[in-house]
Amino acid sequence: MRLDLRTITVIVVLAGLALMPLLAWAVDEPYWLRFWSRVMILALAAVGVNLILGFGGMVSFGHAMYIAIGAYAVGALRFHGVEGGLPDLLLAVGAGALVALIIGAICLRTAGIYFIMITLAFAQMTYFFFISQEQYGGDDGMRIEGGTRLGPLDLSNDATLYYATFLLLCGALLVSWRLVNSRFGMVIRGARSNEQRMTALGFPTYRYRLTAYVISAVICAIAGALLANLTLYVSPAYTHWTRSGELLIMVILGGLGSLFGPVLGAIALLLLEDVIAHFTRHWQLFLGPILILVVIFAREGLFGLLTPRRQRSHTAGGSHG
């Protein structure tokens, strides 16, 4: 591994995240823990989205749905009096995977903009489904009594949650890295640039893409379970289409198809939102044009800016197809 600017950034950001709690305790700012937990949870979801979007070219406008499923899994178990722990994770992952398998199987019949719209359609259906769940508070959502407990670990504790999220984020990055550089990843990336060729080569691309879709959904569902632990609250608003849009923005802002891009994107978007919101109540008036400028001028996102110019066209999956 050469020590170029991008590697340095990855190391600095991860080390910074690892040390953040120490700083927060030193200056007595426990809030930082929670803020950065939220950033990392959304970054985790964005890493999941990136797996199919950045490498597979599948633009899902409905991945917020899996965050909601993960969060509702925790909420529903607590509502029915099941103590949190392994059941939380099993249900979040299981429900996320099952739903993704069914919906993915239908959605992947389409491609391009049709795929964007059909994933949106399913997310909207999920939205209305959760709204109609009166026992879980309907549109108001519900409070979750108590977090996930795994042995001695209690995720409703701020520091525990922070480090659990941090480790899961690193884990998800590692899994993505392994996946993308495996035979599996080659097929996914190949299918993105030329599906017919991959099919002709004898790869059942549909099955590969479905698998990628399910994995990415599961990562989002785990992020949802973490989000439920952070907020101890779940509501249908988690499935709103603008939330799915935000996930896409994180990925694109960070740099499409780069492994670490989504993390940078999540950090950038949430900080941007926060900082502008403190200057003016009309924060969207500024966030909108910033997004436009990024799209027009920083084509490969923040991570692309860190890449030496002559290398840019060669970055893995970084080209736009």
Partner: peptide
């Protein structure tokens, strides 16, 4: 210290965290 919850419960929650802890 003024804040916009955007009608999103989790955003509101985050703001309250800041109010209380920070």
């Amino acid at each position: 210290i003024e804040a916009d919850d955007q009608l999103k419960p989790d955003v509101g929650k985050q703001i309250i965290d800041r109010y209380l802890q920070s």
